[in-house]
């Protein structure tokens, strides 16, 4: 992949179901996210935000249109190549954290590195460094059940960052957190974008969260209805 993490969507459509029950989740969306940009996708429930994020991350493929990440058309890539793309260049942060309950915080952060060929000892060392970067240097040995929501989400962010991706996709990362904790996470994301030039696409229904971004893209009923700079 080229050094940039530019995201280009053109004429993207995604439909679920068939016949009269079919739902058009994303309808003819065109969007460009420049390398190093922080973009927020907002809109009411069912507007297609998460679907769009999944298409950008290669978790799903569009029925029509093109999704390009780093100059590569994801629809033309095999499932294995898309997986490799996510592992090496894209980081995901989820609303429900999706940490593995039987792993410690350190193990939750370290394991993606093993799949990149890194030895386990080196992976743990690197994971410890990343945990420090997200402000969790002392909780590596604890399990997710022993962490607060904010701490769990920081661990999830650390997991997303440990492979040094070019693109970070965050789907409602503050949805399960109280406002102050959520703000702390958003602060973290802003710092990552500012200092590392990490391209971030944030899905949120929270206007104040969206205001952290360089650009806000509003969706409604699967269509892009407005773009503005907060």
């Amino acid at each position: 992949m080229s050094g940039d993490a530019e995201v280009v969507l053109s004429g993207v459509r995604k439909r679920y179901g068939t016949g009269p029950q079919a739902v058009v989740a994303v309808n003819d969306v065109a969007l460009r996210v420049a390398d190093g940009e922080f973009v927020a996708l907002t809109g009411p429930s069912g507007s297609g935000k998460s679907t769009l994020l999944n298409l950008i991350g290669g978790l799903d493929t569009p029925d029509d249109g093109r999704v390009e990440v780093g100059g590569r058309n994801l629809a033309l890539l095999s499932d294995d190549v898309r997986s490799d793309l996510r592992l090496q260049h894209i980081g995901f942060v989820f609303q429900s954290f999706n940490l593995f309950p039987t792993f410690t915080a350190l193990e939750n952060v370290a394991w993606p590195l093993e799949f990149l060929g890194c030895g386990w000892r080196r992976a743990r060392e690197r994971a410890a460094e990343v945990l420090v970067q997200v402000g969790l240097g002392s909780i590596g040995a604890r399990r997710p059940a022993d962490l607060s929501g904010g701490e769990q989400q920081r661990v999830a962010v650390a997991r997303a960052l440990v492979t040094e991706p070019h693109l970070l996709l965050a789907d409602e990362p503050t949805g399960n957190l109280d406002s102050s904790t959520g703000d702390a996470i958003l602060d973290l994301l802003q710092r990552l974008n500012a200092h590392r030039k990490l391209t971030i696409v944030l899905v949120t229904h929270n206007p104040s969260a969206a205001a952290r971004a360089h650009r806000v893209v509003e969706l409604c009923d699967g269509r892009l209805v407005r773009e503005h700079h907060p």
Partner: peptide
């Protein structure tokens, strides 16, 4: 199921 989805989202291949 969700964990497996997360594994795939992070980048595990099907054969893994």
């Amino acid at each position: 199921t969700r964990e497996l989805g997360a594994m795939r989202a992070v980048g595990l291949r099907r054969r893994h």
